[in-house]
């Protein structure tokens, strides 16, 4: 059963990386960077489902991250919900909005989804910026404490804030990857990959192309929303930047750079694009330049994305 191993291998590699890397951290600061990588990885795993499996492109997924993030800021104060339930509420709202936006759009063939989501993302970002009374506007808003770390402490597991969020986000990423990998080999996932291969053929085997595209869009929106919630809860603060256009582009770029067709590849891409700006702070002025250059080189020479291309090369050499 080679497929079973591919799935378990991905999860094992991820789990091992999450568990072992902290031993090499020079300072507590790196837990924060790690947690950020995991959260980005989670959002990008949703992009893998939408773009890698189903071949659809969204340029507004940060909008869903914004909804997830602000749900954690607003639902506890205005609705009295526990922050953990606010994550669920945000995910539900994101899912429903994705359904409403996607339903009319995904009946059309072509790149309408990219344009429609672009508009959606800008809309969410504008609302968050302008509804000052509710959202605090561009300055952002405080987010209540999740409270789980305190609970763990009572149970005798004393973690620093950085450590807690590192492992919490790591586990969230593992669960997200597990779900995406389940989907890959399942009937629903096969239908997504089929329409990516040929929409005409997908129709002839009875796949309701518009419907399964919508499924992929809703699922990926929930991923982005949960990732947005985790960022907000970790920082205990959120600004509209989380819903900004650049963040949407960043998600797609991470997925494409690492390899949108593979969960591990996309997470790898998230890792690189999260780390690079940290490493490039020395050349802060040239950061965008270097990023752009890396992106171009990858697309020219390693079109499937970094990880899948490198793995293929290694395998080719082995034979």
């Amino acid at each position: 059963m080679p497929r079973l191993t591919a799935k378990s291998a991905t999860l094992l590699v991820l789990a091992a990386l999450i568990a072992v890397t902290p031993f090499f951290f020079p300072s507590g600061y790196y837990y924060r960077v790690g947690a950020l990588i995991f959260v980005n990885g989670l959002a990008v795993t949703g992009i893998v489902i939408l773009t890698g499996y189903a071949g659809q492109i969204s340029l507004g997924h940060a909008g869903f991250a914004g909804i997830g993030g602000y749900a954690c800021a607003l639902a506890p104060t205005h609705l009295g919900l526990h922050p953990s339930l606010a994550v669920v509420l945000g995910a539900a709202i994101s899912g429903v909005l994705a359904y409403l936006v996607g339903r009319p759009i995904l009946r059309l063939k072509g790149y309408y989804l990219a344009v429609a989501t672009l508009g959606f993302g800008i809309l969410v970002s504008m609302v968050l910026n302008n509804e000052r009374q509710l959202t605090g506007g561009p300055d952002g808003i405080a987010v209540p404490e999740l409270g789980l770390r305190g609970l763990l402490k009572d149970w005798g597991l004393d973690l620093t804030n950085g450590q807690f969020w590192y492992f919490f986000c790591g586990i969230a990423l593992l669960i997200g990857a597990w779900i995406a990998l389940n989907l890959h080999q399942s009937p629903s996932g096969r239908a997504l990959r089929a329409l990516h291969g040929s929409e005409i053929a997908a129709g002839t085997v009875g796949i309701d192309v518009a419907r399964v595209k919508l499924q992929a869009f809703v699922i990926s929106a929930v991923y982005a929303s949960v990732a947005g919630s985790l960022v907000a809860l970790q920082n205990k603060f959120i600004t509209p930047d989380v819903a900004g256009f650049m963040h949407s582009i960043e998600m797609v770029t991470m997925a494409v750079l690492g390899g949108a067709g593979s969960v591990l590849g996309a997470i790898f891409g998230a890792g690189i694009l999260t780390l690079l700006p940290q490493a490039l702070t020395v050349f802060a002025e040239y950061e965008q330049l270097v990023l752009g250059l890396v992106m171009m080189l990858v697309m020219i020479f390693l079109r499937e994305g970094l990880l899948p291309s490198v793995l293929r090369k290694l395998r080719g050499r082995g034979e």
């Binding site: 096969r190 089929a194 291969g197 040929s198 005409i200 053929a201 997908a202 067709g261």
Partner: peptide, 8 residues
């Protein structure tokens, strides 16, 4: 003109 899922 064949319609195969080339990605599978």
């Amino acid at each position: 003109n064949l319609q195969i899922f080339q990605n599978m």
